[in-house]
Amino acid sequence: MKNNDQRSSIFWLAAGLAIAVYSGKYGLGTLSSPGPGFLPFLSGLAIAGLALVVFFQQFSKPGREKIKDLWQKKNWPTVLMVLGSLVLYTLLFNFLGFILDTFLLMAFLLRVIEPMSWIKVLAGAIGAAGGSYVIFELWLQAQLPKGFLGF
């Protein structure tokens, strides 16, 4: 593997082929009456073909490009924590209800990067959850879910 482009192109090669193969299931039809799988099939082939182009292009590039560790010196655990909290928020959204769920998420996010004092965190989380409830539920009338506690 020469560089990061070559690594990512392998992913796209696999993805393109998978799309093309899967499209066959929906029926390609004929040229005079193309079926539901026709254009997905072509797009899959295009992805795979272009991935090959990217892969082989890298050999003709001067050697200074190397595989870089894209997560070196990066604070990737924070990314995982933020992402994890968002997934959890989504899963609990209907169960806990908008206000409680949002309060918990905001409190977590406000502490995850830079630990602020708990008073600031509480004030921020209450403000964000309450404020967004007023704007979106009461004013814009988005129908946000009520949780098992009834709010």
């Binding site: 933020v82 968002l86 989504t90 998420l105 990067i113 602020m116 946000l144």
Partner: peptide, 21 residues
Amino acid sequence: YPVLFPLILLFCLIGVYSLNN
């Protein structure tokens, strides 16, 4: 930014949800 990004995320979450609930 530590104060700003939770709000950006919150707006994204509500915005997407309220599209189709």
